[in-house]
């Protein structure tokens, strides 16, 4: 069956993130000059402006910044999922990610610890999502 939800826009900057995700690795762009870690990727380091950027695995841990539920489908592909979970996670390395909360979510609370899980949503697409650790 064809995948009806929005796909990532793959370009030279973002391709490593999605390639890593397919291998169950959550990754961040890291500045090889100053060590700053950022997401989404940037053509230069937003901190020191170096062009020398690499990708490194993130720890996969983070903290729940915020969470909610979409009751409206801005893309038709989400219509059958309504309402669906949405969340913002602050990764342990610092950057924010918009994502989905999966698994048991009734204990969701701003500040709760989360960890990454990988959902294969299409043959060629894996989405890093997050679940509560219960800690």
């Amino acid at each position: 069956m064809s995948y009806a939800k929005p796909r990532p826009r793959i370009d030279p900057l973002t391709a490593p993130f999605w390639e890593n995700a397919r291998r169950n690795i959550l990754s961040l762009q890291v500045c090889t000059a100053c060590g700053d870690k950022h997401l989404p990727p940037s053509p230069v380091c937003p901190k020191c402006l170096s062009s020398d950027q690499d990708w490194r695995p993130a720890s996969g841990g983070g903290v729940l910044e915020a969470y909610g539920e979409f009751h409206r489908a801005y893309w038709n592909g989400f219509a059958d999922d309504l309402p669906y979970s949405s969340a913002i996670v602050r990764l342990d390395e610092g950057p924010l990610m918009a994502t989905n909360l999966v698994g048991e979510t009734s204990a969701a609370k701003v500040g709760a610890k989360v960890r990454v899980v990988f959902d294969v949503v299409a043959d060629d697409l894996t989405l890093p999502r997050f679940e509560l650790t219960g800690d």
């Binding site: 939800k5 990532p8 826009r9 910044e65 915020a66 949405s86 994502t99 701003v110 989405l127």
Partner: peptide, 22 residues
């Protein structure tokens, strides 16, 4: 369009819902 579309996160209202939840 944004980097977060594959997760279904979109819209100014989405961002404000998240801030209000905080």
């Amino acid at each position: 369009p944004s980097f977060w579309d594959p997760w279904g996160f979109t819209s100014p209202g989405g961002a404000h819902a998240m801030m209000f939840r905080r």
